[in-house]
Write a protein that binds this DNA or RNA. Sequence first.
DNA 1: CTGAAAGCGCTTACAG
DNA 2: CTGAAAGCGCTTACAG
Lengths: 344, 344
Amino acid sequence: MADSTRTPERRYGTRPTMKDVAARAGVGLKTVSRVVNGEPGVTPDTVQRVRNAIEALGFRRNDSARILRKGRTASIGLVLEDLADPFYGPLSRAVEEAARAHGALLIHGSSAEDPERERELVLAFCARRVDGLIVVPAGDDHRYLEPEIAAGIATVFVDRPPGLLDADVVLTDSYAGAREGVAHLIAHGHRRIGFIGDLPRIHTARERLRGYRAAMAGAGLPVDEAWVSLGPTDPARVRAAARAMLDGARPVTALFSANNRVTVTAVRELSGRTRPVALVGFDDFELADLLDPGVTVIAQDAAQLGRTAADRLFRRLDGADDPPEVTTLPTRLIPRGSGELPPS
Amino acid sequence: MADSTRTPERRYGTRPTMKDVAARAGVGLKTVSRVVNGEPGVTPDTVQRVRNAIEALGFRRNDSARILRKGRTASIGLVLEDLADPFYGPLSRAVEEAARAHGALLIHGSSAEDPERERELVLAFCARRVDGLIVVPAGDDHRYLEPEIAAGIATVFVDRPPGLLDADVVLTDSYAGAREGVAHLIAHGHRRIGFIGDLPRIHTARERLRGYRAAMAGAGLPVDEAWVSLGPTDPARVRAAARAMLDGARPVTALFSANNRVTVTAVRELSGRTRPVALVGFDDFELADLLDPGVTVIAQDAAQLGRTAADRLFRRLDGADDPPEVTTLPTRLIPRGSGELPPS
DNA sequence: CTGAAAGCGCTTACAG
DNA sequence: CTGAAAGCGCTTACAG
């Protein structure tokens, strides 16, 4: 056993503990704990001696040990699709601000749209005993979370609902937003409208497609299945889908792109063409107004999504035990030119 | 004391421990530990009994307790300016991938360009005993990290160097990049070139200004101080600066914008004008090629910045103890039209 | 192959 | 006002 009273000096890679501080200050462990935590009932003189020892040794309380004893870890986990996707920047930032306001740290990870990776991350966070989780789900079966939730880890899903699990969710109204965007194109005279969306296993992709079909049906317009394309959002797939719709037997005169990445690729494809094609995209993006024409979008508020989910989470952590709740946030149509082009 | 042999059932908010599993399986604590950690030397039959108990109780090892005993936390902290800034997305993602490859979790936070907030975050991460830190510094005095580094927390700075501290740094060559961008404008005939940059306390802002001055001096061109503006990068300040340079007594014919946010605002200001003004921006951004004209940029590789910093960090964690090192990554000029406009 | 004891660095509950 | 003992949930070192 190290005789800490004889080696109060800092050794590389070894941190002083409260025990070391106590020895150096000539007080008991509990007194050091009191000073470190600002608890009352310590003589000013004793406080000073402890402070001096802390300073001399370069002591910093080990919060991991504290946490083990106290139960709560003051940390929350955020799992989303991709840390590098600009859509999640404002969402992450909003969650971080809420965590900060509650004195919690943020553990962060990307699922890369892989259900297995989502599960690994989430369970690793649970093993660290985060107090709560905010998850943009990649998978469609979240029963693996049942024991964790039962054990007290508050969980809120955001952007997409969980699968086979009853939990709090915060969503954007994808259905209504897509319907409004497509109806906008119809109002500007379009009758043949293409829909390019994300993988059909993603909830928002299905909801937006449902909105598209509702708008078309509402206007009495038939949908040629050649106008609908769901799949990965990599540029090659999206461009191929757009080309097929634009150059097919019954070419579309307008496109509805169902998320930010699809929209950007659609803009690239359209910019290389002479015939003007109308475009409305789901999700706003920077510089959309500076393109020519400006890109009309159905905007959703990613920061509000994060803020609402974090509010919900911290209310749960404060003891709210009402039944799980679905919150749906509205979208907003922003006309900028591309969605107001007439059919050619 | 709770008699865990009599209450093996899961209670809300209380998790079973190895002790509970041991009691239920009728084995010792150490045997449970062996099974959980996949250590050899346990009879298949015993393994099965322990597994059954784990399953029945919904046990998941508490990694916080494990960490306290083992020393390393398998987590790293990343502090940057703003989680919502698209520039940091690829950097964060690259750091996350490296952490994942090394089995570490990522704790993430924004300094909001506030030195005090940077310090609080970094020290909170240290109190949790992260194994290492990657920091985009906001402050210019990092001596507060000395005891932490001495105690063994590996630290790598990225994008900007630390202040008053000798540590590993990974930078982009701001000086050379800015000089090349401004020289490019000069090569296209410009003699009056404006520079709009970030706050002068930010290292990259100063380096880019130095590059601008070097390019001008290298071509024998005088710099009117009315052409140089450093300050916050909010749109109002940047637009005012651009207007003053464009409408002043000796109007500039070209602008060099020293980061992505400045460039975007400059593009907005220029798009409202009839007289064409050349523009080169530091940092690439999405859709720069689709604007009219396309925006010529000095691109830096944010993902590579993150990857390099993480490599360095994990090499330190693996025991590398060579002296701190400065790594400088090159930039790349991407001509797209705006930087090739002649003087008007 | 298996387990009891000690300890990681703190806090809690209690006693002086 | 102060501190010794027990314990948070694990792992380590050691003994059978």
